[in-house]
């Protein structure tokens, strides 16, 4: 896979750093590569440096040491700032904090207007972006009347309209109800599969992380481990030691397997878990 983002030994220290409390570095030596078109989930406990890292991907924060390249451009290079922000869009946790206009389609157009896209093309891009997140029917609605999941999809549409190559989402579902969560996650996976948009999803929900091509686990400002979801989530004890969890399906399978039952090394969702248990039970009753 072609390299899209390259993070080279990045350190970051907040300016409000207080020597007395010795808060230290939020990031201390992060290395990672994100491929073009890849869907990567980043997990880690509160304070592990996930959100700090997310803000580095489009130059909101600059590394205190080390460097980050987006499509070959150094995020610390002022001349590249505009191009980097065009390529990498950021969606945050609280949908209410990222909606600026009184009408859905105006909100979605906001980013494009700032990029100086011609009005005719803005119209096209907005319509298309709203269709992509399945919110076209709501284009003339007021955002404050929408549900959390709908608002979050409008925020994503605003990013899509800017035609980024990569979308970084920092806990986009933390405040949503179960249906809203599913809507947002379906939208993200579709954008990745159908349009090849690179997705970096930061989440505390392991059920979401298992959907990614690759999972990166952060701890104490560093990458603890990474790999395909089955590789990462089969390390149940390691994850628990680092304040994380695994989906209930994975945990049940792991516990039964530890008792000596013949089950797959790792299952990630309810369907696979039920199927594995079914096969186990059938096999034993023969």
């Amino acid at each position: 896979m072609e390299e899209f983002i390259k993070v080279n030994d990045v350190f970051y220290q907040y300016e409000s750093f207080d020597e007395e409390t010795d808060a230290g570095y939020a990031l201390c030596g992060v290395n990672m590569t994100i491929g073009r078109g890849e869907f990567v989930a980043i997990v880690g406990h509160n304070g592990s440096g996930k959100s700090t890292l997310a803000k580095h991907f489009n130059s909101i924060y600059l590394p205190s040491a080390g460097e980050i390249f987006v499509d070959g451009m150094d995020t610390a290079d002022d001349d590249c700032l505009f191009d980097i922000r065009k390529k990498v869009g950021l969606v945050l946790q609280n949908p209410d904090n990222q909606i600026v206009a009184g009408i859905v389609e105006e909100d979605v157009a906001f980013g494009c207007e700032n990029l100086g896209v011609p009005p005719k093309e803005i119209r096209q891009r907005v319509d298309e972006a709203l269709r992509a997140v399945d919110m076209y029917d709501y284009r003339r609605h007021s955002p404050d009347k929408l549900s959390g999941g709908q608002k979050q999809r409008v925020a994503i549409a605003g990013i899509i309209a800017m035609e980024p190559e990569c979308i970084v989402l920092d806990e986009p579902t933390a405040m949503l109800d179960p249906k809203g969560r599913d809507e947002v996650i379906d939208t993200i996976t579709r954008l990745n599969r159908e349009r090849g948009i690179t997705i970096i999803l930061i989440t505390h929900y392991m059920e979401e992380a298992v959907l990614a091509d690759r999972v990166i686990v952060m701890d104490s400002g560093k990458v603890l481990t990474e790999g395909m979801p089955p590789e990462v989530f089969s390390q149940v004890e390691l994850l628990k030691r680092h304040r994380l969890d695994v989906p209930q399906a994975t945990e049940l399978n792991h516990k039964l397997r530890s008792c000596g039952y013949e089950l797959p090394e790792c299952v990630l969702n309810a369907e696979d878990c039920a199927q594995a248990l079914y096969e186990l039970i059938k096999g034993m009753s023969l």
Binding site: K179, G180, Q248, E271, Y278, I281
Partner: peptide
């Protein structure tokens, strides 16, 4: 109603649907 059952409950329901 836009809600779900816990994943663990769902696993047991699926198992039951399979005849276990």
């Amino acid at each position: 109603l836009g809600l779900r059952v816990p994943q663990i409950t769902k696993i047991m329901m699926l198992l039951k649907e399979k005849g276990i």
